[in-house]
Simulated scan of single mutants.
Amino acid sequence: MARTLKLEIVTPDRKLLSEEVEYVAAPGIEGEFGVLPNHIAFLSALGVGSLYYKKDGRRYYVFVAGGFAEVGQNKVSVLAEVAERAEEIDLERAKKAMERAKQRLQEQVDREAYARAKASLAKALHRMRCRECAVQAGTCNM
């Protein structure tokens, strides 16, 4: 029985990751799901949040927003609209994006603009949380 599975994370711009890992947890649109080696095949749409994987007993974090995860044959393929390793996240940029989104939410705007601002706020908050989790896990330096 396999002890690892292949994790691949791809965005429209690049192949972010391709590694053998022990476990993967990702934010599905219906909630977080976890995958161990020899998991049954399935497909899930991704929400916004932190994907993490375990390798050599340590947790590594990746911010993802939108896309799909496909599980099958000891492989997790993530096709994400946006994905960033925790160490790539610019905290100052995320904080500024959060402030802009909060300001837009307070303004009188139409439904579409409100929804975009709310999505921007969620992405900024999840980016900051992803970076913080990686720092706490010791897999990301500040």
Rank of each mutant, 00 (worst) to 15 (best):
N74Y: 03
E22A: 11
L16V: 09
V135S: 03
Q108Y: 10
Y114D: 01
P27V: 02
E30P: 04
D110N: 15
S50T: 14
F63R: 03
E70N: 08
Y114W: 14
G49C: 05
G49R: 00
E84D: 10
P37V: 03
A80F: 05
E22N: 09
E32T: 15
Y60L: 09
V76L: 08
L105T: 06
Y61V: 03
A101Q: 05
V64E: 04
A137Q: 07
L46T: 05
A122F: 05
M128N: 01
A122Q: 12
L43S: 09
Y52M: 04
A117R: 01
A119C: 04
E70P: 00
R93N: 11
M98K: 15
M128D: 02
P37I: 03
E20L: 12
K118F: 09
A26W: 01
L36V: 10
L46F: 08
G66Q: 08
L46S: 04
C133M: 14
E32D: 15
G66V: 08
E99F: 07
G66S: 09
A2P: 10
R127A: 09
E107Q: 15
A65G: 10
F68C: 02
A137D: 08
A122E: 15
C133T: 02
S18M: 06
T4I: 00
G66E: 06
V35P: 02
Y23K: 09
V135I: 15
L7V: 03
K118T: 06
V76G: 05
G31R: 04
V10Y: 01
E88L: 07
A80Q: 04
E22Q: 14
V21E: 05
E32H: 11
K118H: 09
V35Q: 06
F68V: 12
E81R: 13
R100I: 12
Q136F: 11
G67T: 10
A83G: 03
E99S: 11
A124T: 07
Y23M: 08
